[in-house]
C-alpha cells in the first residue's frame, strides 16, 4: 500500500490484512517492552493544518513504537501562517527526507493532492481531510467491533451481517464517510440516523439505509453497534437543528434510550464526546461502551498503517 487516502480504495482483503496486522501490533502493547525496531531510520512527519491532539499523539505513539523518528509540524505559528503553499511545505518536508507524511487538513482532498502531486515521494496517510475521510478512525472502529464480537478468533474475519447504526452529524463527518465505505466492504449493514439537515444531499446513493428518527430506528431492530458522532459546537448556530437541548432529546443516546438497548449492543464514539448532549454519561461509562478501547486500538491500527505504507518495495507499487 503506497498511501492511505480513503477507505473506499481498500479491498476487503487489504482491509482484513490491515486489521490482522493491527492484532499483532496490539499484542506488542501488552509486553513489557512495547517497542519494535521495524521502522528504525524512517522519518514520519505529522503535518497538521487543523488542531487534533488525539489523532496526532496517537500517530506519534504509533510511529515511536515502531522506532521511526517523528517530526510534528503544526500549521499554527509555522511558515504556513506566513502564507506558504501546500506545495512549498511538501517540498520542504521532502528535502528533509520524510518517508511518510500523516496529514490533517481542513480542505477535503488535500491528502490526495499531495499523493498525486509529485512534490514529495513519501507515503501519504490521511488523518482527516475536511468533510471527506478519516480512514484510520474507521479502521480502528472496525477493529474494535471485530475484537468485541469475535475475540481471539478475530483474525481473517470481516464484519459480515453486523448491524451498525451511526447517529449524528453525518454531513460534516469524515468519520461517518470512512466508516460507511469500510463497513460496507467488510460486510456490515449500516444505518444512518440524523436530522434531515445533517444528512448529505447524495445520501441515497450511499450503501446505507436512512432514518430521521432515532426511536423509530431503534424500535425496528436493536443494532449490534450504535455509533454516536460528536455534535460540533462550531456548527450549533448554523440552524441545522433548533438548539442543543432539542438535538439531545431527539437524537442523543439518553439514559432512557441506552437502557432500552440490549446488553450486547456496543456503544461507540470517536471522541471527544459532549457528555449529556449526544451521549449520556451512563452510556459512555457502561461496559458496552468501547470508547477507551477505541483510543487504545487507535495506536495499534496506526502502527499497522505505518508499517503497511512504509514497507515493501516501491517499484512493485509504482
Amino acid at each position: 500500500m503506497r498511501h492511505l487516502l480513503s477507505t473506499s480504495e481498500l479491498s476487503r482483503d487489504a482491509a482484513i490484512d490491515l486489521l490482522d496486522i493491527s492484532e499483532d501490533m496490539a499484542a506488542v502493547a501488552d509486553r513489557e517492552n512495547k517497542k519494535l525496531p521495524t521502522l528504525r531510520g524512517k522519518t514520519v512527519v505529522n503535518l497538521f493544518f487543523e488542531d487534533s491532539t488525539r489523532t496526532r499523539i496517537s500517530f506519534e505513539a504509533a510511529a515511536k513504537r515502531l522506532s521511526a523518528d517523528v517530526i510534528n509540524f503544526s500549521a499554527k505559528g509555522s511558515s504556513v501562517s506566513k502564507g506558504e503553499s501546500l506545495k512549498d511545505t511538501a517540498q520542504t518536508l521532502s528535502a528533509m527526507g520524510a518517508d511518510a507524511v500523516v496529514i490533517r487538513h481542513g480542505a477535503s482532498g488535500a491528502p490526495a493532492v499531495l499523493a498525486a502531486s509529485g512534490w514529495i515521494d513519501a507515503g501519504i496517510i490521511n488523518a482527516g481531510d475536511g468533510t471527506h475521510e478519516h480512514p484510520t478512525q474507521a479502521l480502528l472502529d472496525a477493529f474494535t467491533m471485530r475484537r468485541r464480537l469475535h475475540g481471539a478468533g478475530s483474525r481473517g474475519k470481516g464484519l459480515d451481517g453486523v448491524s451498525v447504526t451511526i447517529v449524528g452529524d453525518i454531513v460534516h463527518s469524515r468519520v461517518a464517510r470512512s466508516n460507511v465505505w469500510l463497513l460496507k466492504t467488510l460486510g456490515a449493514e449500516v444505518r444512518l440516523v440524523a436530522p434531515a439537515t445533517l444528512l448529505p444531499v447524495a445520501v441515497h446513493t450511499w450503501p446505507v439505509t436512512v432514518d430521521y428518527d432515532l426511536d423509530h430506528a431503534l424500535g425496528e431492530s436493536a443494532p449490534d453497534v450504535i455509533m454516536m458522532l460528536r455534535i460540533q459546537q462550531e456548527r450549533m448556530n448554523q440552524a441545522f437543528f433548533p438548539n442543543p437541548r432539542e438535538y439531545s432529546n431527539v437524537w442523543g443516546l439518553s439514559n432512557a434510550r441506552w437502557i432500552g438497548l440490549p446488553a450486547t449492543t456496543l456503544v461507540m464514539h470517536p471522541g471527544p464526546m459532549n457528555r449529556g448532549l449526544e451521549i449520556s454519561s451512563a452510556a459512555a461509562d457502561s461496559p458496552q461502551s468501547t470508547i477507551l478501547e477505541q483510543v487504545a486500538n487507535g495506536v495499534s491500527v496506526r502502527m499497522a498503517t505505518l508499517y503497511t505504507v512504509l514497507t515493501g518495495n516501491r517499484e512493485v507499487h509504482a
Binding site: 500500500m1 496486522i21 501490533m25 515493501g312 518495495n313
Partner: peptide
C-alpha cells in the same frame, strides 16, 4: 522488509 512486497505478520504467543 524493503526488498519484497509488504509482508503479513503472524501472532507471537
Amino acid at each position: 522488509l524493503w526488498q519484497h512486497p509488504t509482508r503479513m505478520s503472524s501472532p507471537t504467543d
